[in-house]
Structure formats: structure tokens, C-alpha cells
Simulated scan of single mutants.
Amino acid sequence: MASAEEASALVQRLSQLSTDLTAAERENLKFLLSMAAGGVLSGHAQHIPEDLRKSALGATQHSLPKLIAGAREKFPTGVVFHGRGPFLTDEEREALDRESRSCRPRAERFLDHYVASGAPVARDISLSGPIRAFLTESVGPIAPTRRANYLYYDEPGLGIDPHVDKDEFSLNILTMLEHRSSGPQRSELILHPPGREAMRFHLQPGESLVFFADSVTHQRTRTVADEAIRLVSFGYRTLGGTHE
């Protein structure tokens, strides 16, 4: 079993290594660490002794935020905000709800969920002054990616395995528009902050989660029969960090 000191030393070595890498090389390293963490969290490494799995998961989880310094140090769980965001009006939430319904027929399957991009209302709201002001005040300078996607989980078995997002989609505003289910078992969003218990979110319609999607492993558990979820996701890139 790797000791705590050895795991900590590995985290520091990976962090130091990342300072000498290009952006593309750092992205590849982050992808490999994400895949390693996701494999352990998804149960795909049962052949490895449990103590070694825990050490490996801890090392990868702690390493991911260190590959991208800056504002993340203020948010050890990766969560910037959770609740009914002051950056969206009720009218904007209603407009997003209407547009997401109208976009469902053209949504395309991406892995284990459906995505509709290029929706004008979502794009314009993602670029709004209140959102940019809120994010800038919370985490510092940001650059909109102009990526505003509607996400649909409305068939049994849809979800997303543990992963982290690319650097260009480093900060995510995820807003629930609808979550219908007929039983007690429901899909949930789970974040896996380093060194902490998993954080489970059951967003209510109109609630948002703002988090660093590029440095904290996250997943959506699988939907069950008679369950349907509609979300809108706004992506931003943080600026001014040590490696950015």
C-alpha cells in the first residue's frame, strides 16, 4: 500500500510537472488522471486491492485541482454556488424552460445522454451582464465560451460516468429545468472533491450549481423508468491562474 507521505509526494510531483507542460500536454495529463479516478469510482478496478485503490483515488483527486491553480484554492470542494441563482430572473428561467422543450426533438445523443446546442435564448442568457458580474465577483476574470447546451436524461439508464471537463469548459453553471420521477429512486448529480465525502445534489427546478467542472470529478447517476430530466449548461473559462 502506498503511504500517505508517498501519495502526497506524488501529488506534488504531478503539480510541479504540470508547470513545465504545454496546455495540450496538461490537458492530456488531466484526462489520464480523470480516467483513473473515474475507473476507481465506477468500480472498474475491483481487481486492485482496496487500500491501493484508495491511495490511487486520493492521489488523482488531489492532483486534478493542482494542475490548474488560481481561484480553485478558495473552493476546496469545487462548488462556487448552489441554490436559486441571483444571476437569473424568473422570466429568463421560463424562457429557458420553453426553449429547452422546443429543442428536444433535435437533440442528439452524446454517449449516455442527449444534447441540443446552438439555442439562441440560452446563448444570449449565458452572455448576460448579471451572470458575468456574478462569476467575476466570485472567481475572478472569466471568458464566455458561448457554449450553452440543453441536456436531456429522459430514458432509463441515461447518465454520465465520473469525469472532469476540458479546460475550455472549466467553470460550469448547471441549472435544473425539470426533474420528473414516479418513485423514490432518482438520478442525482455527484461531485467527488479530494479528501472529502461525495457531495450529492438533487437540484430543484430553477436551482443552479456553479462549480469547477475541469478539476473536480463529477457524474450523474443513471435514470430509472418514468424519470425525465432537463437541464441547461453554461460553460466559461477562468482566466489569470498560474497555468492558464
Rank of each mutant, 00 (worst) to 15 (best):
Arg123His: 08
Leu151Cys: 10
Leu111Met: 13
Ser126Ala: 14
Glu108Pro: 01
Tyr150Cys: 04
Thr19Arg: 14
His243Ile: 04
Gln61Asn: 12
Asn149His: 15
His192Asp: 07
Glu99Leu: 09
Gln46Gly: 04
Arg222Thr: 12
Glu168Met: 00
Val11Pro: 04
Glu73Phe: 09
Tyr236Lys: 03
Arg220Pro: 01
Pro49Met: 03
Leu32Asn: 10
Pro105Ala: 11
Asp161Glu: 13
Thr223Phe: 02
Ile160Phe: 11
Arg93Gly: 04
Ser117Ala: 13
Gly58Val: 09
Asp112Arg: 13
Ile190Trp: 08
Val210Phe: 13
Cys103Ile: 04
Leu158Pro: 00
Ile131Asp: 01
His243Glu: 12
Pro130Ala: 07
Leu171His: 08
Gly235Thr: 09
Gly159Ala: 08
Val216Met: 07
Val121Ser: 12
Asp214Trp: 06
Gly70Trp: 02
Ile68Thr: 10
Glu73Leu: 12
Tyr114Ala: 07
Arg230Gly: 00
Val210Ser: 06
Arg230His: 03
Asp154Cys: 09
Glu91Trp: 05
Ala36Glu: 15
Pro86His: 09
Thr223Ser: 05
Ala9Glu: 14
Leu191Asp: 10
Gln204Met: 02
Asp20Arg: 15
Glu92Leu: 02
Ala69Gly: 14
Arg222Phe: 11
Lys66Val: 12
Gln185Tyr: 06
Ile68Asp: 10
Arg93Leu: 15
Lys74Glu: 06
Glu73Tyr: 09
Arg180Thr: 07
Ala143Ile: 12
Ala228Leu: 04
Ala9Phe: 11
Val79Lys: 05
Gly43Ile: 14
Gln46Arg: 09
Phe201Ser: 08
Ala71Phe: 07
Val80Thr: 13
Thr22Arg: 12
His82Phe: 06
His44Ala: 15
Ile142Glu: 02
Val232Glu: 00
Phe234Met: 10
Glu188Asn: 12
Tyr152Met: 12
Ala148Glu: 09
Ile190Tyr: 05
Gly240Cys: 04
Glu25Trp: 00
Leu177Val: 06
Leu88Ile: 13
Asn172Ser: 13
Arg146Ile: 03
Gln204Ile: 00
Gly140Phe: 11
Gly39Phe: 03
Ala148Pro: 08
Asp124Lys: 11
Arg123Lys: 13
Ser42Thr: 15
Gly118His: 10
Gln219Thr: 14
Arg200Thr: 15
Leu174Gly: 01
Gly38Ala: 06
